[in-house]
Amino acid sequence: MDKFTKLTSSAIPLPIENVDTDQIIPARFLKATSREGFGENLFRDWRFHKDGSINSDFILNNEKYQGSILVAGDNFGCGSSREHAAWAIHDYGIKVVVSSFFADIFKGNALNNGVLPVQVAPEYLKEIFEAIEKDAKTHIEVDLEAQKITIESTNSSSNFEINPYKKTCLMNGYDDIDFLISNKTEIEAFEMSRA
């Protein structure tokens, strides 16, 4: 897994609430057996018309908005548990998703793929949207170590929560498998105790 410490980037605004994982990656693209290449179909049915032509109204197709931070409306990532949603976001080049609320499973899937979900207060989310609207090039800094997010143009910052264990994993690029396997003796003892 990629390490994550600090990131400064312009951001892509997606001020829509309840963005579900079926929008992030529609089910018909879940037939692959590897993790690669899902970025191509990220937000497929919003990015492209049914005939395959580009929907120029959709934010990802607007050249004005670039960057590796996605700023989204409330309850991002609800619905299906498909990790393909996190893979698609990662593969597209997004490293941080900011929202005022994340669905549980998506949040876990993102963290397991080196994508940092940053949950901020609704008022601060509004501030970010406004700053981007004012200047699409405005930079946003996300500092995982300090658990702090800053809008550079306004110098307004906010702290965010992250589980300390997950923070360590992300900062060092560790995943849970190695940790779980290192506890195998205890797991086997637990099994014996229930037999």
Binding site: N109, N112, Y165, I177, L180, E191
Partner: peptide
């Protein structure tokens, strides 16, 4: 409860989740 594929791999490897 539902899990992502990374967690499927974790359960494969250890029959446990964090």
């Amino acid at each position: 409860f539902g899990i992502g594929t990374s967690q499927v791999a974790q359960v494969f490897a250890s029959q446990c989740l964090l």
